[in-house]
């Protein structure tokens, strides 16, 4: 089982690296959005109610990372939908391997990609004058939340792909990623959001995931936001992996 999961994860990672349309959403688009936000809204840190931060880049980084992780989930869904459309998925199903390994392999790849995304954004932060105030422990906290969230978002994409079985439908989910993100406190302090986004953000797990990753960037690591972020990420991951396995079973039953 572990060997099969490892082999499928390696295959998924190879395909991701080989296809530019998969790599671009993972880091390039969120980085460009980060640059546009920082360049355009850098003065907003002086607004009354904005928490003390050394730079707007430090504040935005966790939002961009959350966005990248979500887009990674969409990319995982598109990859599975492509395999379904091209018939490779059916060949995997027919192979003498545990079926759940098909999903687990892809989720392991999502975890590795999340690790790469953290490295990318932390490097961007450091190169452009930002800092991770929480030090090594802070980076560990960011990695932990990002990897768990990346797996959860990957499970969302795969579930949609297994239900929809079409690349174009999964691509249609792309705008929804932004809807969920825009009604969270990922990019701006919750108290400064407009109504009703402010109210929705309170209940949006993305707010907690982003705040959990932001805390070690803008200051010393504090337990509460990090644990809340980890709990929100774990909640998304558990619920969506269960949904993913259920969708796989239904797909196999209807095949």
């Amino acid at each position: 089982m572990i060997r099969v999961v490892g082999a499928l994860a390696r295959r998924a990672l190879r395909n991701t690296i080989r296809r530019p349309q998969f790599v671009a959403p993972l880091v390039v688009f969120p980085t460009l959005f980060l640059a546009a936000n920082v360049g355009g809204l850098t003065r907003t840190t002086s607004l009354p109610g904005f928490p003390p931060v050394s730079s707007f880049l430090d504040f935005q980084l966790a939002g961009s990372l959350t966005q990248a992780l979500l887009l990674g989930g969409v990319a995982s869904g598109i990859a599975i939908a492509l395999e379904i459309e091209m018939g490779f998925f059916d060949r995997l199903v027919a192979a003498p391997i545990p079926r759940v390994a098909i999903v687990l392999g892809r989720l392991c790849a999502a975890a590795v990609i999340a690790l790469f995304q953290v490295a990318w954004f932390v490097a961007i932060d450091l190169i452009f004058g930002g800092s991770v105030e929480g030090g090594v422990l802070g980076v560990v906290a960011i990695v932990a939340i990002a990897v768990v969230a990346g797996v959860g978002f990957g499970a969302i994409g795969i579930t949609i792909a297994l239900v929809a079985r079409s690349v174009s439908t999964v691509q249609g989910v792309f705008p929804l990623v932004f809807v969920i993100l825009f009604v969270s406190s990922a990019f701006f302090p919750q108290d400064l959001l407009e109504t009703p986004a402010r109210q929705i953000a309170r209940y949006n797990p993305l707010s907690y995931i982003a705040n959990g990753m932001r805390d070690p960037i803008v200051g010393p690591v504090s337990a509460e936001p990090v644990l809340e972020g980890l709990a929100a990420a774990a909640g998304v991951a558990i619920v969506m992996i269960a949904a993913c396995v259920l969708a796989l079973r239904r797909r196999l039953a209807s095949a």
Binding site: G49, F178, V179, L181, F182, F187, L193, E194, A197
Partner: peptide
Amino acid sequence: GLTSMFGA
């Protein structure tokens, strides 16, 4: 989304 987020 941008209006909701960055309105301030």
